[in-house]
Design a protein around this nucleic acid. Structure first.
Lengths: 102, 102
DNA sequence: CGGAATCCAAGAAGATACTG
DNA sequence: CAGTATCTTCTTGGATTCCG
């Protein structure tokens, strides 16, 4: 039994820099590393591949490699990842509402 | 218009160390700093007060000070904070389900 | 093109001391 | 008791280089 709790999901898959934006891009259909790198402002290729690797580890996205030259790779949200994106949207709306009340 | 987006909420209020656990303790009715410090394993008083300060800034918790000697202070979840806790629980359940499927 | 390795700078957190 | 300030240590992210 591994010991991953919800705290870890927030810290490793949602709370670190670029992560939420990156997930939103993937949700929008941007699936290849090169495109993702260009679409998330400020994020370098190194950080991107660290993020993607972690998201795969935690079952948030899935990786597909096509054995072509040059190599082509795609990342897609898993069912879990899709639900996370819905939750991100929920928080977004909640947060906007909370700000309006002030 | 200030520029706080959902990314920032995840990075500053949910994704950093101890934060989710801290919020859960407050939800459980532990409201005073001294008790919170003792109830969250490894978290020091300094980090605790940084976290609480930030949670107040973002409207996740509310602070009440009682002008007594020795001073007494309490932190409570706002409506926004309560909704965030519900969402944390959702993610917890989702994550457990996702792990079982593997 | 995708990804890993290296080295360095910046930021987060631990330890401690101090104030009202 | 609650909170701040300082100093040190550790972790994260930025820049660059190399490989398949």
């Amino acid at each position: 039994m591994s010991e991953i709790d919800v705290t870890e999901v927030f810290e490793k898959c949602l709370g670190c820099r670029y992560m939420v934006t990156l997930l939103q891009r993937i949700e929008q259909g941007i699936q290849r590393p090169g495109q993702l790198e260009r679409s998330v402002d400020g994020m370098t290729a190194k950080v991107l591949s660290e993020r993607l690797k972690r998201l795969v580890e935690y079952g948030v996205v899935e990786k597909t490699s096509y054995p072509e030259i040059p190599p082509r790779v795609e990342y897609n949200l898993t069912a879990f990842g899709l639900r996370l994106l819905e939750i991100i949207d929920e928080v977004d709306i909640l947060h906007q509402e909370a700000r309006l009340k002030k």
